[in-house]
Design a protein around this nucleic acid. Structure first.
Length: 207
DNA sequence: TTCACGATTAGCT
DNA sequence: GCTAATCGTGAAG
């Protein structure tokens, strides 16, 4: 755990400025590693450190949802930065993205894995009481389930909502490993997946 | 209105 | 390693 918890028992007190998100998805993706996602719900508060992300570009990236252009679904990706883009995959799982680039320009970052920091009992209750610690939030579908994130959070402002993203108190950026993205079949793959090197909460470290 | 598909996961063989 | 589960989305009719 980098940095001791501040405020009310959770790490990371400072929110980034809107301009933090208003950049190229590749840059934002790298900078999101080590930041802390906090979700406050009726059931309680959960928080986790982001340890794995993937960038989805607005330009020339056939794997990105926004490559289909502006539709009702991709409206959020074309919207203002610093908001959550949530979609359902395979009719079962929800995936959380952070919208990047200025309004009107598409681009986002898929959050793929978290290191649970707070509200772990609640996460276990949602994921299954006997689940191994390393499997609580190590995957895009797993982390949304653990955090209690669903389609209701689509479009939420990460600077002013029950779902917020905080900068870490501790020093420096973690060591980062870069690989190709996971699960992409339709597009020419690029090295747009980033994760914290040797972190045990990363999904598919072997990929 | 209908239809095929997917940035996944869990549980089997 | 293989596959079922299950539904929002977008393109076609």
């Amino acid at each position: 755990m980098a940095g001791s918890p501040t405020g009310s028992a959770r790490g990371g007190n400072h929110l980034p400025l809107r301009s933090f998100y208003s950049r190229d998805p590749k840059c934002v993706a790298r900078d999101l590693l080590g930041t802390i996602l906090v979700h406050t719900t009726e059931d309680g508060v959960v928080a986790g450190r982001i340890v794995e992300v993937e960038a989805y570009l607005g330009d020339g990236d056939a794997a990105a949802h926004s490559s289909a252009g502006l539709t009702p679904r991709t409206r959020v990706i074309f919207g203002p930065p610093g908001h959550a883009y949530v979609y359902k995959i395979y009719g079962l799982h929800c995936c959380l993205n952070v919208v990047t680039e200025p309004e009107g320009t598409p681009g986002c970052v898929l959050v793929r894995a978290l290191e649970p920091l707070a509200g772990i009992a609640l996460m276990r209750a949602r994921r299954g009481p006997r689940i191994a610690a390393g499997l609580i939030a190590s995957g895009p579908g797993r982390l949304t389930q653990a955090m209690g994130i669903g389609m209701r959070q689509n479009g939420a402002d990460l600077l002013a909502s029950p779902l917020t993203l905080h900068l870490p108190d501790g020093p420096g950026r973690p060591d980062v490993t870069t690989t190709t993205r996971v699960g992409i079949t339709r597009a020419t793959e690029l090295a747009l997946r980033f994760f914290v090197t040797d972190n045990p909460f990363v999904s598919r470290p072997w990929h």
